[in-house]
Simulated scan of single mutants.
Amino acid sequence: MKLILTQEVTGLGAPGDVVDVKDGYARNFLIPRSLGTPWTKGGQKQVDAIRKARSSREIATLEQAQSVKAQLEGKTIKLVAHAGASGRLFGAVTTGDVAEAVVAGGGPQLDRRKIELGQPIKAVGRHDVSVRLHPEVAAKVALEVVAG
């Protein structure tokens, strides 16, 4: 079955890509989670719109990605979160929280969808977060979660 991806799917493709997947995978996983829509002849306009939106959000060149990586890896980002007496957070740190903390700490604007948390951050302390800036460039961000 041919699908147009509406969001990035690891190992499959990026938004706007037309992919061919098995029928069950499309019907039971991708379409119900709004990760893709069925491909039609009229869907080409949708593909063009998705690609245009993606290109406006992405870092265009490898040199730009390298400079943003240098900015991110040079500093520790401080994030204030509500926590109990034992240091356990009320809830978890999200990728949106990380993106806001980077901007508040003087860093560049990041797309929250490019931020990867290895595991949920549910305690105060130092955590490493990965950011995919470009298909060839990934940055490691040092995140310091403190109780607030």
Score class of each variant (00 low, 15 high):
Lys22Met: 02
Gly24Ser: 03
Phe29Cys: 14
Phe29Lys: 08
Phe29Ile: 11
Ile31Thr: 07
Ser34Cys: 07
Pro38Cys: 10
Trp39Arg: 00
Lys41Cys: 13
Gly42Phe: 05
Gly43Cys: 01
Gln46Pro: 11
Gln46Lys: 14
Gln46Tyr: 14
Val47Glu: 13
Val47Met: 09
Arg51Met: 10
Ser55Val: 06
Ser56Pro: 02
Arg57Pro: 00
Glu58Cys: 08
Ala60Met: 02
Glu63Ala: 13
Ala70Ile: 10
Gln71Thr: 14
Gln71Cys: 12
Gln71Ser: 08
Leu72Pro: 05
Leu72Lys: 01
Gly74Ser: 11
Lys75Asn: 07
Ile77Arg: 03
His82Cys: 06
His82Ala: 15
Ala83Asn: 06
Ala85Phe: 09
Ser86Glu: 06
Gly87Thr: 05
Leu89Trp: 01
Gly91Ile: 11
Thr95Ser: 01
Asp97Ser: 04
Val98Pro: 05
Glu100His: 04
Glu100Ser: 08
Ala101Val: 08
Ala101Thr: 12
Val102Leu: 10
Val103Glu: 07
Gly105Val: 09
Gly106Asp: 06
Gly106Tyr: 00
Pro108His: 12
Leu110Gly: 13
Arg113Pro: 14
Lys114Cys: 14
Lys114Leu: 03
Leu117Ala: 03
Gly118Ala: 13
Gly118Ile: 11
Gln119Val: 07
Ile121Trp: 06
Ile121Phe: 04
Lys122Gly: 02
Gly125Met: 11
Ser130Trp: 03
Ser130Thr: 12
His134Tyr: 08
